[in-house]
Design a protein around this nucleic acid. Sequence first.
DNA 1: ATTCTGACGTGGG
DNA 2: CCCCACGCCAGAA
Length: 110
Amino acid sequence: METSGNFFEKVYEVAKQIPFGRVTSYGAIAKYLGTAKSARMVGWAMNASHNNADIPAHRVVNRNGLLTGKFHFDGTNLMQQLLESEGIVVKENQIQNFSAVFWDPFKELL
DNA sequence: ATTCTGACGTGGG
DNA sequence: CCCCACGCCAGAA
C-alpha cells in the first residue's frame, strides 16, 4: 500500500474529470484533496502523470492562469496549442478570460 | 544523512 | 505594483 501514492491517484481522478474547454489550478485540486498547502505536490503528481495519457495536464495551470508547466511538455507551445484547441484563448502563456474557463472542483465536482 | 530544487500559494513590505 | 520569504512534501545529487 502506497501511503503517498494515494495522493497521486486522487490528483489523477480530479484531473480526468476536468471537462473539455475548462481549466483548473494546482491549488484548487490540492485544496479539494485537503492538501491546500501542498499545491506543489499536485504539480509533482502531474509530472508523474506524464506516463498517463488520460491525464489532461494541459488543463491544469497555476492560480494565475499561467501555463507554468508548458516547458515540461513535449514541444515548446504544445500546452498552449492543446488549450486553444479546446477553445481556450491563451496569450503569452497566460490564459485569457481565465475566470470563465476556470473549473472549480468545489463548485462543479463536489 | 544533508541540501536543493520544484508544473504553487499566500502574506508581508 | 513589484519583490521577498515561508510553508509543504517528495525526489534527486
